[in-house]
Write a protein that binds this DNA or RNA. Sequence first.
DNA 1: GTACCTTTACAG
DNA 2: CTGTAAAGGTAC
Length: 291
Amino acid sequence: MSMDPAYPQSLPCSEASNCKESSLTPVTCGPEENYPSLQMSSAEMPHTETVSPLPSSMDLLIQDSPDSSTSPKGKKPTSAEKSTAKKEDKVPVKKQKTRTVFSSTQLYKYLSLQQMQELSAILNLSYKQVKTWFQNQRMKSKRRQKDNWPKNSSGVTQKASAPTYPTLYSSYHQGCLVNTTGNLSMWSNQTCSNSAWSNQTQNVHSWSNHSWCTQSWNNQAWNSPFSNCGEESLQSCMQFQPNSPASDLEVALETAGESHNVIQQTTRYFSTPQAIDLFLNDSTNMQPEDT
DNA sequence: GTACCTTTACAG
DNA sequence: CTGTAAAGGTAC
């Protein structure tokens, strides 16, 4: 339970080392930084960058994103530039906060420290960004809860209705992170039935200590917002045998969920907001919420 | 040092 | 206007 991988080790330059305390200009961090794809001057930044320096294994995972939504600026540099230019023009550099629009592909693989680090490198994002994302997700979940996220009221918001934890792994597992040691984290989502999952193709990517598992789902079965991107390539898989679909997951979840905190829970893969919500909500208790 | 929370600012 | 990445501040 000690997970403090000083991220800066193997990463090229992910750490926040850059933008955080450095200054307010994330862009200044560096060209090959992780922010490159963020905003910068798309003019000269063919975001081909997206996935260049990736290992071969990861290639599959991230290669897609033709330019989905990410396009930090691939599409409308005007706005950004405008604003930026404007500010620079007169305002004493207040703070060029540029919203990085992560591509679904990128979002698809945000995880925890270790993974985050690697991911950051892989995705060409900074560790900070990855971290921030999770943070925001947590906040988002909380807010939703507070706001009484329209869940069953009409049963509309939640495409597949928020499943409870038990249901989660039963019919909601889309991927999982398996630790070589036997520990595994999972990210789940809706519309994924065990059967479907069994049929899916399984591609295992070696990922550090963990095996990045991606399972290929049916595009149709996948309704989550995040899933609309060409995840076909980065679909998830499972490391455990296809024979033990939910079984392993359950065990793993139990083990992992019982002694993990929110952070760790977050560590699990979230493919969809709902999944995150679920995790953030029940993960702590992992009880059948069945009063 | 990190996570949590609040606020800011941008993209759709 | 909403959603969300990101900065700032605070607490552990």
